[in-house]
């Protein structure tokens, strides 16, 4: 009996009148669980520490450092950072035309890539979500996501080979009698590669949004006499909008920050190239930090607007 109940033999014999001779030593785990019992706040705090350290220290901390170092400068001879607070970096950006040109070029490209990617992504996402047979859907989605499983660098270098002088593209067009196109290392090349690289990121949120639209809504629209175009304009598009905006965040933000694709397939400078040159070659991290605040600020505005449009529900 005592063995079954797990009580002391003595206790069992005296009907529980004697004290237990040796209290069962609780294991660490039991202690921990006892300490946490009835303290939901403590439990929550323990759960939240790793993500808060991640977001707070590593992400926001480095952002804050970035912001702070934008006001420092570099000692010219020794190349070390001097912690004198000043606006000199921002003055340089303000006074030199070239930094405006590069910033506007980057924004222009980000916008163009976003528009092109949405135009390419929407029909495809619509087809997968609403027209393709349910059986083939996972296959198409797999094909869309597949490029993301290979290295970014490999894909960028592949495009360099395709677009460069006497490359695959030139070879193909001259075989077709069109002559060589010769867009190697041009802005067009950069645009093509950006559109290619970010396309899956745009397709997926649009697909999610379109897939969620209940068929009953489309039927109701038709029952009420709306033509296909009207249904598309007044039912599908508004419901897909958060997905489109969510996708545009990816293409816009990724283009704004990228410097590898332009340096591999193009020759003009983007914000990222200026930042990279200043961190590396020019050894002027404070200036790089100041210039990097431009895309940060643009994205802050962009994300605020996107939130208003409900984009975060589709992420």
């Amino acid at each position: 009996m005592h063995r079954l109940l797990g009580v002391d033999a003595e206790v069992d014999r005296d009907q529980g009148l004697t004290k237990r001779t040796e209290p069962r030593t609780p294991t660490r785990r039991l202690q921990l669980s006892a300490a946490l019992h009835g303290r939901p706040r403590l439990k929550l705090a323990l759960l939240l520490v790793p993500p808060i350290v991640w977001i707070g220290v590593i992400y926001l901390g480095s952002l804050t450092l970035l912001f702070a170092s934008a006001f420092w400068r570099v000692d010219e001879l020794s190349g070390t950072i001097v912690h004198d607070w000043g606006l000199q970096n921002f003055r340089t950006i303000w006074e030199n035309e070239i930094y405006h040109t590069v910033a506007f070029r980057t924004i222009k490209f980000a916008a163009a890539v976003t528009v092109i990617d949405i135009m390419l992504a929407f029909p495809l996402a619509y087809y997968v979500a609403r027209i393709a047979r349910p059986k083939s859907r996972p296959v198409i989605l797999l094909l869309i996501v597949m490029p993301l499983w290979s290295s970014y660098l490999v894909r960028a270098f592949a495009w360099r080979t395709i677009l460069s002088h006497n490359g695959v593209l030139d070879w193909a067009t001259s075989k077709l009698g069109l002559g060589a196109i010769g867009i190697g290392y041009s802005d067009t090349a950069v645009l093509i590669v950006f559109c290619y690289l970010w396309l899956p990121f745009v397709i997926l949120p649009i697909y999610t949004a379109l897939e969620r639209i209940p068929s009953s809504l489309l039927e109701a629209s038709q029952d009420l006499g709306a033509k296909n175009a009207t249904t598309f304009r007044r039912v599908v598009l508004p419901l897909a909008k958060p997905g489109i905006v969510a996708g545009s965040i990816f293409s816009f933000a990724l283009t704004l920050g990228d410097y590898i694709a332009p340096s591999l397939v193009g020759k003009t400078q983007f914000i990222g190239n200026i930042v990279k040159d200043n961190v590396g070659a020019a050894n002027n991290a404070p200036f790089a930090a100041a210039y990097a605040l431009i895309p940060v600020a643009i994205m802050a505005v962009y994300l605020t607007v996107a939130r208003r449009m409900g984009a975060f529900e589709e992420l």
Binding site: V57, L60, G61, L63, T64, L65, F67, A68
Partner: peptide, 12 residues
């Protein structure tokens, strides 16, 4: 979070 980040930056 922001305060701790600032502290960190100040340490820097």
């Amino acid at each position: 979070i922001v305060a701790s980040a600032l502290l960190l930056a100040a340490g820097g």
